[in-house]
Design a protein around this nucleic acid. Sequence first.
DNA 1: GCCAGAAATGATAGCGCAATCATTTTTATG
DNA 2: CATAAAAATGATTGCGCTATCATTTCTGGC
Lengths: 340, 340
Amino acid sequence: MSPTKMPTERTVTLKDVAEHAGVSPMTVSRALNKPATVSETLRARIGASVESLGYVQNLVAGALASAGSNVIPVIVPSLSNSVFVEVIAGIQDVAQAAGYQLMLGNTEYDLDREYGAVSTFLGWSPPGMIIAGMRHLDRTRNLLKRWGKPVVEMMEYGTQAIDMNVGLSHYKAGETMATHLVTQGYREIVFIGCRIQADYRAAQRYKGMDRILARHGLHRREPISYDGPSNWALGGDALMDVLEATPKVDAIFFANDDLAVGAILRAQREGVAVPKRVAIAGFNGLGLADLVQPGLTTIMSPRLEIGRVAARQLLDRFAGHTPAKRRVDVSFQLQVRGST
Amino acid sequence: MSPTKMPTERTVTLKDVAEHAGVSPMTVSRALNKPATVSETLRARIGASVESLGYVQNLVAGALASAGSNVIPVIVPSLSNSVFVEVIAGIQDVAQAAGYQLMLGNTEYDLDREYGAVSTFLGWSPPGMIIAGMRHLDRTRNLLKRWGKPVVEMMEYGTQAIDMNVGLSHYKAGETMATHLVTQGYREIVFIGCRIQADYRAAQRYKGMDRILARHGLHRREPISYDGPSNWALGGDALMDVLEATPKVDAIFFANDDLAVGAILRAQREGVAVPKRVAIAGFNGLGLADLVQPGLTTIMSPRLEIGRVAARQLLDRFAGHTPAKRRVDVSFQLQVRGST
DNA sequence: GCCAGAAATGATAGCGCAATCATTTTTATG
DNA sequence: CATAAAAATGATTGCGCTATCATTTCTGGC
């Protein structure tokens, strides 16, 4: 682990600072962590010593001694989906301002890797944890429950939360969009996404849609799922594929806006009339959805908000408060635009 | 720091596992960290004990005892710019596979906050660090140099690296794009970005462009800078603003593709002919740049690649190798499309 | 079977800090 | 001014683990 071991001068420790300032180590520790409890005189002297010795607190030792770090692990299934990035940015906003560091785990939609990440992160004695989704391996759930510290499951709103929960119902979102499409008169609707077997939130949107189609006695199709992470170009390809394979499709509900926007741009380029030939709908409410032509009908999900709320729920608990709600439904909003 | 302190059962420690398995703690430690050095019999027995007790390694203690953690801090100036996210994803790819955790710091383009982040992160005894950019406060540079462990400065390619460096020359990128625009016959060129005073990489692209304009004796303009993070909608607004304020502008070099794509979409919507009325160019090479109409002329920067290389440079050094090159110019590529 | 060398295991010590309680100094009060 | 209470400071101890060195057990060659 140690790189080219040069004859590095010994690291400066608390003790060194203490000696330099002529006080006890404990006083230095306090001056650094709870300045209010140290007299102004000493605080200044210690500050000067810290400065002149170039002392950097060893947070590892601090975390061990006090049995707790200020690191908050955040576990997400993907970084290539812009949604998670925005959520992370929201968490960062709040957490960093409160003096917490984020540690990032990426599971690539693999529940075993998720377990690994959780279990590794627990080893950092974090004061709490944020994890995307509510579907985990049993042992993951058990581990977190036994752990007993605050845990926020985000992105999805559900009843079986391990501890706290912030998100929205993807099933309802699917229902909402499908209802809209059916109301508009579309009859041959298909759902297109990526890694749907793993991305069960997308799958739930599909199921919500499917239920509505069933209720209206419409043609129900299996979702179309592509491998690999979603990206803009893929949406366009998917559009062309489905139009060729299933010409009578008159509406597509994409699993996310990245795909849907890609499809609209491609349609424009290929001269496919949207929504006349085929309607296109997405999910997320990316800023871009409003800029393409026609505007993309989508479901707005408050991504930054989810992140911020998740972080605040944790911070509340750290502070000893019981948060107003253990479960927050941030809800969503259907945004109808030209594409349907 | 401790939340509602319930009468939690004592944490399971190495010692507990050792007793349960009837071996010494040291053997358990070895079985966990260097399995090859422990006999198969004991390894199995210890594994069983770990399982049945639900033991989770305390990485904090481990890091303290061995004076080194497996956490790699990554410091970026922003998370709202998709570029950094992609770079982070690249780092994650490589680092997580090698068993390292990423710790995320966001400076919001503030060099003081950068110093704070660096100094906090050093407290986690990381084996190395990755930081965006080459422009830092003197004390930040000094801190990192004195630290002596591997540091990668990324995004930008330059000569004054603290240690290792992966990136590209933004100045040259600016020159390249400007040369292209001038060659195409554009004469009234303006640079538009966000937070240019802070985002000095964007500023360097501007300077590169400015030099070319000067050389050709063309009208040189101050860059136009908007406050706050860049986003798609802003690009469109900026386009309309500049066309109204300075009608004779015939080409815009946007600081990034997010803005440029927004501008193209807006132009389309408002009936502004691109590139006839005004040419539009960007920087980054987002996938989207190829999908809009007309396609966006841009400079492709290998973002994932930068992240991967940065991570690999670190890992190489951890392994004791001297990396082939301390400084890697990943270069860039001018991608000419319809928008110019 | 005996022994040298290798492999496996164990005992000890300490990483750098903060919790805790003991002690000293300061402040407020009558 | 004496004294109790509060504030500031210090001494001790241990967080859970691994580096290091000491010891034991296993190997193979003769």
